[in-house]
Nucleic acid binder design. Structure first.
Length: 819
RNA sequence: GCCCGGGUGGUGAAAUUGGUAGACACGCAAGACUUAAAAUCUUGUUUCCGUUAGGAAGUGCCGGUUCGACCCCGGCCCCGGGCACCA
């Protein structure tokens, strides 16, 4: 009989067929049960699953299956983040159209996911490269256009002068194009932006509502948004123009000894007109990649523009420099430099011999010393060398100087954000076409609703130089929807973060051909539990939060936030870094699934580490997981069932050994419920069940009640393991006589089984462990002390000593503090 | 460089509210079964001293708070994630 030997191949195939035949995981909105939307971040279809996917989707599946056991109407959908760069790379390398490559990958990865037994509602599956999906993204963009939430402006890109193409940051290696090896240039292109900064304040404030998010993610988002209070100050130039700088330290204004502007600042460009040396410097600065990390790592360099600005308070001339570390994208692209009180300015001033002036001194004796020969003094303190402002503290100085600037009409108080508007244009082929028509007379005109979707042609020749649709006259030549004259479509496509910013909502209304979202989206959103890698802590999660608010303001959803609770997973590392598309085929779980089964792969992954922790993947655990399932779980149950007739459990008649086992059963049940639901510690769930099964194995009691207690233990063990190893548990649950586990309920803890007659108390002397005693759980301190002192090894540390203090924590510790 | 995390036996880790550090596994060693091997089972396994009883040290490093610190505070080192066009 197949029931005597564990065959993962047979069981997993049969159980998966059962789920498919019964539509076990297809859900509707018509349920008495409270809804639970459990979502794992959908994958980019890179080719095959890697261990990072296995981890994410197993964790999501464990949460979803546990919530089903807890009586929730659980939606767990899956789809494909199907647009993106790797499809274009593959197209170049293998001469296969991106669409074909993408759909092949999806087919393979879907098969792998099904083999892993995830409880997805596959009826809702979609891929973002499907016009039925991106049509609504285009439709929504035209709504934003009409609301004035999108605009076009020039922005810098990485330009490969040989391949004549725009490169992603990851395609620029040591300043050179990855394929051409040419030095990359910054180039300015007109691009579409969405006004996320209009929502900066709400995105910041609403972080406080996200009680189910880890603090570290909220902190990262807070810092990314980077709200600050400061002053925008206008420095008049020698000529008529002025240059604006933003500072959060107006108290240091009297210490300004120069201004620094970004290499792309208009002032720098005009100054370079008659200065070849400066022009050469600007050209150099434009040969770095458009990534902040690269800018920050560069040697800090600068040149004077030759112009002076007028200090708004003192009226003294202040030289204006160009510096490669000033970001054009942040603030006004210019800063006032106070080398006495800003470390970066200090280093720059030292390097170029610019004056350093102290205007702040330490206010309190416990502050660091101020020695401007060694470093800048950057703490807040008391003003000096600042004329009438001398002696003021930071707050007073901020107010006084800001007020003076406002009064002189050369400054304004300003709240600033580090967050920049979201640039959504990509000069790529494999993406969602931007639904705009450019007309010489009417300007940018959104594509009318009835003409949507603007379909991306998929039958293309892909050469790798530029985007195919930029060469397809038939496609981009059109007429203006407003005036009817000849016009040209946008040939740029959207950033793929657009698609991933609203897919969670579309899973609810996946098949609505009349609207982007419908009532079902209002039922299912917000997502109750969102699961995905911590690498998405900022960009994806911030864009999705933003999009949700945009959709709310369009009346499409009702909540303020898309994701109630967030599980931010640590990375599955491989050779010390994250597994990724660019790392190739590494980490494919297929051979492990074939040899040891999906249950063993899932169990090994859950057991390896707690979810939020990064860890180096090792295959070793899979074989032992398979072994445990086979020997400890399956064989134990088969042996137990071979014992024949089973009496009903009579709790009142149990021996103390039987009670001990039963206590462990209910302790394990309670612990695992907490681990699953609150702590999300699935590694310790596995450990707890292993521990319980070790006890069951050692429990040799073939009496009727002995077997009844074991039966309860095995039932509980299978129930607890079922979210993690669903196939084997489906079969074992039936063998134990309980029916279909997909519709089972979690079991209640029998509180009376948890009662203990004795507890162990650790006895310390001066904090060092000297013995252990057994006591009744409600023992008073006097009793604990007298029992503890009966122990020779405790008493010998107390004799001839004065007990200064006795600390008693019932059921835990007794500590004698002696002199 | 900036922002956010992490560091515990040979290895993955546990310790949930400041209260017995190393649960549960892997690996390794010894043993049982076997003609043998595999499989399976049993025992041991932080380091050092000690026959045992027991003792000392120990959670990246240095310092602090506390009766008591893997846990809280300050400084440092190393590793990982993110830095706006990888997703």
């Amino acid at each position: 009989m197949s029931e005597h030997n564990y065959s993962h191949t047979e069981i997993e195939r049969e159980v998966q067929k059962h789920w498919a035949d019964n539509g076990s995981f297809e859900v509707t909105e018509n349920s008495d049960k409270p809804k639970f939307y459990c979502l794992s971040m959908f994958p980019y279809p890179s080719g095959q699953l890697h261990m990072g996917h296995v981890r994410t989707y197993t964790l999501g599946d464990v949460i979803g299956r546990f919530q089903r056991l807890k009586g929730r109407n659980v939606l767990q959908p899956m789809g494909w983040d199907a647009f993106g760069l790797p499809a274009e790379n593959a197209a170049i390398k293998r001469n296969i159209p991106p669409a074909k490559w993408t759909y092949q990958n999806i087919a393979h990865m879907r098969t792998q996911m099904k083999a892993l037994g995830f409880a997805f509602d596959w009826s809702r599956e979609f891929e973002t490269c499907d016009p039925d999906y991106y049509k609504w993204e285009q439709w929504f963009f035209t709504r934003l256009f009409r609301k004035g939430l999108v605009y076009k402006k020039a922005a810098f890109v990485n330009w490969d002068p040989v391949d004549q193409t725009v490169l992603a940051n990851e395609q620029v290696i040591d300043g050179r194009g990855w394929r051409s090896d040419a030095l990359v240039e910054r180039r300015e292109l007109a691009q579409w932006f969405v006004k996320i900064t209009d929502y900066a304040e709400e995105l910041l404030e609403d972080l406080d509502k996200l009680g189910g998010w880890p603090d570290k993610i909220k902190t990262m988002q807070r810092n990314w948004i980077g709200r600050s209070e400061g002053v925008e100050i206008k420095f008049q130039l020698d000529g008529a123009e002025a240059v604006s700088v933003y500072t959060t330290r107006p108290d240091t204004l009297m210490g300004v000894t120069y201004l620094a502007v970004a290499p792309q600042h208009p002032l720098a460009i005009s100054a370079a007109g008659n200065k070849p040396e400066l022009q050469a410097f600007l050209d150099d600065c434009n040969q770095t990649k458009v990534a902040e990390a690269d800018m920050a790592k560069q040697e800090k360099l600068g040149l004077p523009t030759g112009q002076n600005a007028i200090h708004p308070i003192t009226g003294e001339p202040v030289p204006v420099w160009v510096a490669n570390f000033v970001l054009m994208e942040y603030g006004s692209g210019a800063v006032m430099s106070v080398p006495g009180h800003d470390q970066r300015d200090w280093e720059f001033a030292k390097k170029y011999g610019l004056p350093i002036k102290q205007v702040i001194e330490p206010a309190e004796s416990n502050q660091a010393e101020c020695n401007l020969d060694l470093e800048a003094f950057t703490e807040r303190g008391v003003l000096v060398n600042s004329g009438k402002y001398d002696g003021l503290q930071f707050d007073q100085a901020f107010e006084a100087i800001a007020a003076a600037l406002v009064q002189k009409k050369c400054g304004e108080r300003q709240t600033n954000y580090r967050l920049r508007d979201w640039g959504v244009s990509r000069q790529r082929y494999w993406g969602c076409p931007i639904p705009i028509i450019n007309c010489d007379k009417c300007g940018s005109v959104p594509v009318p609703d009835e003409d949507l979707p603007v379909e991306l042609p998929t039958d293309v020749q892909f050469e790798g130089v530029g985007s195919p649709i930029k060469k397809m006259n038939d496609w981009y030549e059109t007429s203006c929807p407003d005036c009817g004259s000849a016009a040209i479509r946008e040939t740029d496509t959207f950033d793929t973060f657009m698609e991933s910013s609203w897919y969670y909502a579309r899973f609810a209304s996946h098949n609505d051909s009349e609207a982007m979202l419908d009532q079902r989206a209002k039922y299912w959103t917000s997502v109750d539990h969102y699961v995905g890698g911590e690498e998405h802590a900022i960009l994806h999660l911030l864009y999705a939060r933003f999009f949700h608010k945009l959709m709310r303001d369009e009346g499409l959803v009702e909540s303020d936030e898309p994701f109630e609770k967030l599980l931010a997973l640590g990375m599955v590392l491989q050779g010390g870094t994250k597994m990724s598309k660019s790392a190739g085929d590494a980490g494919d779980p297929q051979h492990l699934m074939d040899r040891f089964g999906a249950d063993a792969v899932r169990m090994a992954m859950m057991f390896a580490a707690p979810p939020e922790q990064s860890f180096e993947w090792s295959e070793n655990g899979v074989e032992s997981a398979n072994k445990w399932l086979r020997t400890r779980l399956w064989n134990t149950i088969v042996d137990h069932l071979a014992g024949g007739e089973l009496p009903t459990l009579d709790v009142a008649s149990l021996s103390s050994e039987q009670k001990d086992l039963r206590r462990s059963v209910h302790e394990t049940l309670a612990k695992c419920e907490d681990d699953f639901g609150r702590r999300l510690a699935f590694n310790t769930v596995v450990a707890a069940v292993m521990s319980l099964m070790n006890q069951v194995t050692k429990f040799e009691d073939s009496s009727g009640q002995g077997r009844a207690v074991v039966h309860e233990a095995l039932t509980v063990a299978v129930l607890i393991m079922s979210p993690i190893t669903p196939h084997i548990c489906h079969t074992l649950w039936q063998m134990l006589g309980h029916g279909d586990i997909e519709i089972a309920d979690w079991l209640p803890v029998d509180q009376s089984a948890l009662e203990k007659s004795v507890v162990e108390l650790a006895v310390q002397v001066n904090g060092k462990l000297r013995g252990k005693v057994e006591l009744s759980p409600d023992a008073e301190q006097d009793e604990a002390v007298s029992v503890a002192r009966l122990q020779e090894n405790v008493e010998k540390y107390l004799i001839d000593k004065t007990i200064r203090k006795t600390i008693y924590v019932p059921n835990k510790i007794l500590n004698f503090v002696v002199s």
